[in-house]
Amino acid sequence: MTLFLLRMRPAVAASALLLAAVVAIAIIGPALAPYNPYEIQHLKVNQPSSPQHWLGTDEFGRDLLSRLLIGIRPTVMVAMGATVIAAAFGTFLGIVGAYGPRLVSFGIMRSVDILLAFPPILLALLAVGFWQSGVVSLMAVIGVVYTPHFARIAQSSTLQVMQQEYVQAERSMGASPLRIVFRAILPNILSPLMVQATLTIAAAILLESGLSFLGLGIVPPEPSWGQMIGTARSYLSINPMYLVWPALCLAMTVLAINIIGDYLRDLLDPRLRQ
């Protein structure tokens, strides 16, 4: 394992370690928390870092480090889950939209256009309004919001790839549509989708934070990073570090995801392999 990490580029290795830590904390986070993250202490409101509370406390005197540690789980689950949902459905719709029968693809792509016309936050607001808010519904809603982006990218890349002679060659050999999709099209449209996926994870975290900020996402007292950033805004002048810590965690995680995404794209493309 160490050898494997050493052979990678340093930035990639660091990102991989960071992401591994994030995922590990998402699983065992509650056990690591030094304090009860829900315990309200009115005498310790908005404190800066101290030996007792390494990262300080929030507006209710709760330990920030503990809240950050357990806030990972909903953040990571929503972001990853939403991206997987969006990537899977979006890619499927996009390929069918480019490769399928004319009427079907017309229907798909026009629906995608309509979905794209909605501002994502509005769409999410609508959907969350109907369902209970919580991790699973956030995942589904944010997944649906980002599905059209994947569909568009998959469709335009598929149209491009279909012009390539190797797809004609497959057809001339009598390859079935399924084979053409899985052997010729999918591997060749993976790069832009991979880039989109890393962007979507970051965007999903931000959208989740936006929704939580509006009270439609993760419901307090459960914390999530986005929700913490949203709340911390109001206390910026009293306790600026309250905003900095969750924002830093978020930024580092998103950066790591982007670096890993780039690396995966290179790894999957034989032309870029060393």
Partner: peptide, 9 residues
Amino acid sequence: FGSLNPRLS
């Protein structure tokens, strides 16, 4: 350059 799928050996 176009008739061979770049992702297949």
